[in-house]
Design a protein around this nucleic acid. Structure first.
Lengths: 211, 211, 211, 211
DNA sequence: GATGAATGAGGGTTCATTCAT
DNA sequence: AATGAATGAACCCTCATTCAT
């Protein structure tokens, strides 16, 4: 088993270590994150972390995988049964991402930086993870989606991509705008976001639907 | 004059130094970029670079300004006289960005990382530059744009934002997809991109235009 | 515990390191003292010294405190039970300082320079130490001193200060004159110094005592 | 001629250069004084200063000699015709030193530090100057001094030294106490100093004079 | 004579990783 | 298994001095 030295630890200790490392990576990025700070915050010895993970790179990838796994599960959890309406489904995914970004700001930060500003030595491994997420989630995302209302002269894949690109852009815009506000503030404004999403939907629907 | 020690150098030497620094910054980001590597590659002494720029931060900002200045000029140069048609104008800007990203991959990399993953100590200065670019270019970008064909029941600003969000997303997608291909390969596929842009335009036009 | 990384070292190693650092500080002063030379002479790695003390400033203050602590103890040790006669007590203190300056020339040099030519960044910390030494030692120095023989028309504080100023000046003169001689040579001349001190005492006594 | 490159400069320029260097040495000491700052403040080129003085050490010694020469002359100037009374003469010298320390604080600072915390590489040269000053001034200082009132059973040299040691200690104490006050403030308190000097004189006179 | 660009050794400091205990 | 002291290469930066112009 990979990382078995770590996995065999009591759950409570694992949580403490993961939390400490995550916070350090979130605050400082991969390069500037200090293993010293991690072990201090986690209350373990310097050697331990290398005993568990071998080196900083592996540690980072472990944390990243942990986050991906947690975030994916939690995302499905928030979304619940996906709407069959294509716009609703995509919007709900976007809203869930926003919610998650504020529920777990440290995780979001690590994840965001992993895919955006990747240290050279991690590029390959991170790309592999990106591909995996893509392969595992996109098919399910598209499944059972009702595209019957799309105009017949439009490639449905293209239609879908149009919606996704726009909604993603909006979602990221929201997350960035609200970045420094508290989760509470953000959650209270979700209704306004939904309204705005729907304004864009009206435009797209006129372009994509046949009436 | 700021950086006059550097500016007075022979053009050839300046180019060599800028190139070496740019490459190092592009490959490693601000923090991990090594002034040692820069001077080695540029063939100058350790002290020289500090004689020219004072410190690493100034050096970085000089390179960044150089890139911004070059890229802005070149972008206008590629775009030429902007179309009055809103879709054409935005697409042409996107295509110019793509072209530029492949003409000058190092510059693009540095620029991209500057605005995306900013080292704490540079945040303020970079934000200042971002605001300046925005203030200097957005008004001209919107000027003389023909919005007469937008449906009367749509907020033109929202319409414009819809187009921009979608086109930007597409543009970034293209740049990322083709990231590891040669400039030549990319430039040869531009016609296909144009075609694809236009497919999205058809969808948006149906949503935004009154016929 | 402050400096616990260092304090936990075996006594022999601590001595070696303290000696090496002390010598470097004594020879070159705070600013020009090179941590490189220190580690080389102490036979430890570059990182070690920062592991132990954090930075050069802390290292210096540690050494300084070590010296103050040692010198104070040793001074009391040499002096023994202080004479109640005011002249004898002050002279004995002076002689003890002279003895100490030759017993531990490196310590004396560091101490002397610390209070005489203080690097700006250390001023506050050194002043704090000076005040502490003053507060802890001056009261005991004055305690149980027999001033009954001073003439009644003289302010005893002024009388005391006269003696101290003169004796201190003499003491420093001796230390400077003999600076480059061996401790042995100096110790052999102490009898002559005592004699000279006493010549000055005769003068002062005529001025201060009532007969 | 030594430093002839410098000596042939127009007087005004020499003054400017001396002033700039003196200030830098006074503020930072020999080691930390930056030749860069000197040439900047003096408005000359980097090369010039080495052309004039060869190296930093020579420059420092030139400045030091300049100060010694100026201070000595000015001291005699302030003192005027020396009193024949031994106490008055020594006190007047002390008062003149105090006055000079406030008239020319930069010069005093350089001079003070030169003799107190001497960089290793300058020790010999500075000692040579110290000896020269001593040899040139002490004889004149003693000349025509009226020692007739000293008690016959006292070695006059010892008596003189007693006075000098005490007065010097007092003088230095005053200079240090008033170090951060303005020249004006200090000059206004000179009367109080004179009074205090005289209190000590009364004590010494009782010890030294025969009545 | 005068310039100031260029040098490069050396400065203090950081940090992931190792390894004897 | 767990520790944490020790390592040493690499970091950015400073500076008196030189020398081609």
């Amino acid at each position: 088993m990979l990382y078995e030295n770590f996995e065999n630890l009591p759950e409570e200790k694992k949580k403490r270590i993961i939390g400490a490392c995550m916070e350090e990576f979130a605050r400082n990025g991969y390069d500037k994150a200090s293993t010293n700070n991690m072990v201090k915050k986690a209350g373990i010895s310097k050697g331990a972390i290398f005993h568990y993970f071998g080196n900083k790179k592996n540690l980072y990838l472990y944390i990243l995988d942990y986050i991906i796994s947690y975030m994916t599960k939690r995302l499905y959890n928030i979304i619940g049964t996906p709407s069959t309406d294509v716009f609703e489904r995509i919007m709900n995914t976007g809203l869930a991402k926003i919610r998650l970004a504020y529920e777990e700001p440290l995780m979001y930060e690590v994840l965001y930086m992993a895919f955006i500003s990747t240290p050279e030595e991690l590029k390959e491994e991170i790309q592999r993870r990106y591909n995996k997420i893509y392969a595992e989630n996109v098919p399910a995302f598209i499944e059972n989606i009702d595209m019957s209302r799309f105009r017949k002269d439009i490639n449905p894949a293209k239609a879908l991509e149009t919606i996704i690109l726009l909604i993603d852009a909006l979602t990221n815009k929201y997350i960035n705008i609200y970045r420094n506000k508290s989760a509470n503030e953000v959650l209270m404004e979700i209704d306004k976001m939904v309204e705005e999403y729907r304004e864009y939907f009206e435009i797209l629907k006129k372009g994509l639907y046949s009436y």
